[in-house]
Simulated scan of single mutants.
Amino acid sequence: MMKSLTKTDFNFPGQKDVYKGKVRDVYFIEDDYLLMVASDRISAFDHILPAGIPFKGQVLNQVATHFLKATEDIVPNWLLEVPDPNVAYGYKCDPIRIEMVIRGYLTGHAWREYKSGKRTLCGVEMPDGMNENDQFPEPIITPSTKAVEGHDEDISREEILKQGIVSEEIYVQLEKYTRQLFQRGTEMAADQGLILVDTKYEFGMKDGEIMLMDEIHTPDSSRYFYAEGYEERQKEKKQQRQLSKEFVRQWLIENDFQGLEGQKMPEIPEDFIQLVTERYIELFEKITGTQFQKADIEDIENRIQKNTESIFSK
């Protein structure tokens, strides 16, 4: 079985702290910078699966940095360098504790809420008479709180302002950036025969300026449909062909796991791990229009250590 990067334990020059997330490990360098290592861990329903997915971290990092570079004319972002296939290096920002979720289609969490009878999500009205995977008349923004631990929760614009999470001026700008980024991502996906269905963006503040943080338009933060056959499948009420992490969630649901109390995480078979790797690589090639170049994974930690030395020698 191929090797995967499921944990890291680096000690970089100037390192002051480290945060181990569900997928990424963030190393804080001096006071103003951070080095983000995309591991091969995979999470669903706010639980980390017990097996790593080879090359997943490389895919996530390279897709994210591809789109950060392609959108830097819309909003400033944190990225400075990409010293290794699994690593991004850039500015440390003060995070805004909400995720800006934008949905162009009725699917995933929005569909589950809709199917239960709800017609309002995060204070936003959803039209009656829609079917799963139908396109909204225009994309809707449905923010969620950014939980340090546990589940993120839906929150409305009104509640964000009431709680004083950000000022109205900042929130209006976040919405503007979110729509502009989604439009750019939609256009870039369409060029590759894909539909950007929904996604999320995280922002922070640096020197009084809003900056785009973290990852964007990756299969962990976004959902893609294949454009070809979309209309026919909707008319026939068939499931859409998609490139996203949703198929992992569906596999877990079929194996009686949704992260609920008392449920046990199923064993992850090797053939399913291989399938997930192939899906992630397929997404990389589809969304970027370039061939995926597999990095050497014989000793990933040592490779990262060597490739990041150039940053710290400056």
Rank of each mutant, 00 (worst) to 15 (best):
S4A: 12
T107F: 14
G164V: 05
S222D: 08
F312Y: 06
N133G: 05
L275R: 10
F67Q: 11
E187G: 09
Y171H: 13
I140G: 03
R184C: 04
F203R: 00
L181A: 14
V26I: 09
D46G: 11
L60Y: 11
E309M: 10
R184V: 07
L275H: 12
Q291M: 04
F10D: 08
P269W: 10
E175A: 08
F136S: 00
F247Y: 04
K7I: 12
G129R: 08
Y19K: 13
N302M: 14
E99P: 09
G57E: 06
D256S: 08
Y114V: 04
V82Y: 03
M100K: 00
F12D: 03
I141L: 07
T218Q: 01
A70K: 12
Q173L: 00
D134A: 01
Y105K: 01
P143S: 09
V18R: 09
R41K: 14
Q234L: 08
Y177N: 02
Y226G: 06
Q250Y: 15
V172G: 01
N133A: 13
T178A: 01
F225P: 05
T71W: 06
K200I: 02
P50R: 12
I48C: 08
M100T: 10
L5H: 02
L49S: 11
Q305H: 09
E169T: 02
L275C: 12
T218V: 15
Q242N: 15
E168V: 10
N307F: 15
L196S: 09
G14I: 04
P54S: 07
I155Y: 02
S313D: 08
M188H: 11
E30T: 04
R279K: 06
W111T: 08
M2R: 07
D84E: 11
G129D: 14
H217S: 13
E254F: 04
Y91N: 00
R41T: 15
F272I: 04
V63N: 04
S244W: 10
E169K: 01
V75C: 01
I195P: 03
E261R: 13
V23T: 08
K146A: 03
I195G: 02
S39D: 12
P95V: 05
L174W: 01
L181F: 00
F225M: 05
S116K: 15
A38Y: 00
A110P: 00
Y280M: 07
I281T: 11
N77M: 01
Y89I: 13
H217W: 06
